[in-house]
Design a protein around this nucleic acid. Structure first.
Lengths: 344, 344
DNA sequence: GGCGTAGAAGAAACCGATTTCCCCGCCTAC
DNA sequence: GTAGGCGGGGAAATCGGTTTCTTCTACGCC
């Protein structure tokens, strides 16, 4: 008896609105979807009834009926990484323009998890964006068909029909090295990323001299990682290597190293040049501002959406894209110190 | 006639599996959901049929039938801000443990958009997390009932029954000021955040002396903003203010300012102490490491999930939480220069 | 005036699952 | 020997929309 007049006891459905307006459910549906063939008077009545009951159609039921969820998913290896956050942001922004929403799945750097997540996320959505999975190529190739429509980011497509947006890591790393070479560096440390990482393998490969005899700086490879902490901890190894410049796997590592060097009072770039990769938003504002290679990750997210949108509409997506990152010379790189770097 | 044996022409439904296994759809459903009361032999047959057809149940249909989507949404004002990224990450991680997925909606700092987004996002999901909207309190109060179940983050709840996770910005800003006071600073600049921001208002209020006559450092208020660029551009205003310390609205502003100061060769903290707010991951690794106030944003995301989970299960959520942020003294703050700061 | 047709709205099928309800067969107890 | 109980599985209702198909009305044209 004490039922409040506010908030109907349970969800308002299309049937309630139909009854209130004295029409059929079909008509309510037509009105809600703006189908033209409805009498103005009836349309008004339906809209009033809907407003009165505070009706809002169930997206789930609608999705089931029309066979689309208007949602896409993105699977990333680590939501804590600014790179993937940028991709997510770009995708989200672009998808929102078309009325689509984005579901996030974070594998937390767990490759097996990644496969399950991708499958599961795909089933909930109309399409999928897979960002640089640590996944083995064979596993990936087998998985992709059942994920379609899907777009691959930060990785080249191993399967036809799956658009991909890759980054030319090799070219990026070479542009950094070339700049350091130009500045006079002859012994360069490379702070390597995670072993399994596709991006790291590409960078390493680019550091091998194309012609063994070609004059080229000497490289010291230091196993490191992909996070701040990894770079921070690498200080001693870098300083002990005798290198005059440190090329870091990514900006996070570079910034971690920068912090450690600053604490120790090591001058950058006076004593050691430091370079990053990715050009995350912080890179410009580091002290000193970080020389790095700019990967337009937000745009990759937007491009991923464009491909997905094509696939969703049955169009052939634009051709695969390989982004060539641009060198951003800032204050953290400079000529090597005049003194020999190997002095203790 | 050339139909490939791979990939059935259209989606495999429960009916196909039922037919293949020679049982009813009800039985297939029972098997798929692990209901105990199914003969072992039949269970095996169903599973084999499902595997053979590569069946995976439609989440949409399932959601409609059981009335839950196993998805929650989060609405944030700006996905580019590390704070909200952390909240998203915490929420995502916690929700994943319970088999829930997270949908992201980014209002891109647009308050009207925020209302629409929140409504729309909520309809697609079982529940909603609303992060520190710029929304007017009245608008919010009116909106909240129809969003339920919903949890508010970074803001106090204006409605009973809506759990909230707030941050005691006042206490945070006072702890910074107290530390600077202890170090001997007498003239402090406050680089203010966006006007409409709830967080900024709380910080400003905390800077008003509780007793007008109480001895307290002098404050210079400098309108600034919430982003890197804002801090970067504020350099001249800060240097011209005669303050020996700059208390920044957040870490982004502080890091922007730090970058600008570094370029100009201004010693930090020698010539000027700089403090931030939030303790974003980068703060520790800035050069110099940023003195700031630590807001455990990832935990807020996890706590938000805990509240949501309670609501979803019809339990009373744990009481509202007001996090008192912790001062993190690092290298960017120190005693003021001996010389008068006002000298040109 | 009659017939053909277009336009508007309702009835019912459908999307793909879950779940209630009921029936059937077998086992046990009286 | 029969009744009652129980467990397993199928038929059908249900979730809340969309859409096709059908019906009815009214209009225009010959």
């Amino acid at each position: 008896m004490a039922r409040m007049s506010t908030r109907p006891p349970q969800r308002v459905t299309i049937a309630h609105v139909a009854e209130e307006a004295g029409v059929s459910r079909a008509t309510v549906s037509r009105v809600m979807n703006g189908l033209a063939t409805v009498d103005a008077e009836i349309g008004k009545r339906v809209r009033e009834a809907a407003a009165k009951l505070n009706y809002s159609p169930s997206t789930v039921a609608r999705s089931l009926a029309i066979g689309r969820t208007q949602t896409v998913a993105i699977v990333v290896p680590d939501l804590a990484n600014p790179m993937f956050q940028e991709t997510l942001r770009g995708l989200n922004r672009a998808a929102a323009r078309e009325g689509y929403r984005v579901l996030v799945a974070d594998s937390i750097e767990n490759p097996e998890e990644e496969v399950i997540l991708a499958r599961e996320a795909r089933r909930r959505c109309d399409a999928l964006v897979l960002v640089s999975p640590r996944m083995e190529p064979e596993v990936l190739a087998e998985l992709l068909p059942e994920l379609s429509p899907v777009v691959l980011v930060n990785r080249e497509s191993p399967a036809p029909g799956v658009p991909s947006l890759a980054v030319d890591y090799g070219s990026g790393i070479r542009s950094v090295v070339k700049e350091l070479e130009r500045l006079g560096h002859r012994r360069i440390a490379y702070l390597a990323g995670p072993d399994g990482s596709h991006g790291n393998q590409a960078r390493m490969a680019a550091l091998q001299p194309p012609v063994p005899s070609a004059p080229q700086p000497e490289f010291v490879f230091i196993p490191c990682g992909a996070m701040f902490e990894d770079g921070y901890r690498a200080r001693e190894a870098v300083l002990g290597s005798g290198a005059t410049a440190a090329v870091c796997f990514n900006d996070l590592v570079a910034l971690g190293l920068l912090g450690a060097l600053h604490e120790e009072g090591v001058a950058v770039p006076g004593r050691l040049s430091v370079t990053g990769f990715d050009d995350i938003p912080f890179a410009r504002f580091a002290s000193p501002a970080l020389t790095t290679v700019s990967v337009p990750q937000t745009q990759l997210g937007e491009q991923a959406w464009a491909r997905l949108w094509d696939l969703l509409n049955g169009r052939d997506p634009e051709h695969d894209l390989t982004v060539t990152p641009r060198l951003e010379v800032r204050a953290s790189s400079g000529p090597p110190a005049a003194e020999a770097a190997n002095a203790p």
